[in-house]
Amino acid sequence: MTDTRRLIILGLFVAAAGVLHAVEAWLPLPVPVPGVKLGLANIVSLVVIELYGWRPALAVAVARVVLGSLLGGAFLGPSFALGLTGAAASTLAMAYAHARWRPALSLVGVSVLGAAVHNLAQIAVAALLVASAAIFWYLPYLVLFALPTGLATGLTAAYFLARLPRVG
């Protein structure tokens, strides 16, 4: 595959992830806990990890957060810091799990792990931002919420990859 082709495909993934990131910020969730999100953009991270490896996946995740926060009007705000740390940490954790534990752990397991790490990283940044470790009280609720969302995004990525025509 040529570099140009790869660049174009990764660019399309950034666009798709950026849109998912922005759209999910508009969805109201009935939980008054900061940081609870569906994590739809994780689908793209999983797919890029599977197809291209961790470096492009990290690049796509960072570009996605920048793009998504520009679209949502939250660039360089606190939610930008949370999003960036969460996306980078979860992408790296998923890439590591994918490389090391892949046959034992399925793509869905990798996704659930990524969702949990995403929350852990966000909580840590939130605790730093407000200078209060009491924020960690939210973590069990966030992890509980991350299980179904991680399952859903992992299954979506698995089905997407299964139906993807193998070209290039």
């Binding site: 793509l107 659930v112 069990p140 698995a158």
Partner: peptide, 26 residues
């Protein structure tokens, strides 16, 4: 089913950890 044994262990462990945390919280 797509879930492997390790997946289920991971999910069970996270579930137990969050349930424990919520229990401690309450």
């Amino acid at each position: 089913m797509l879930l492997t044994k390790a997946d289920k262990w991971l999910i069970a462990a996270l579930l137990a950890a969050s349930a424990g945390g919520i229990g401690l919280n309450l």
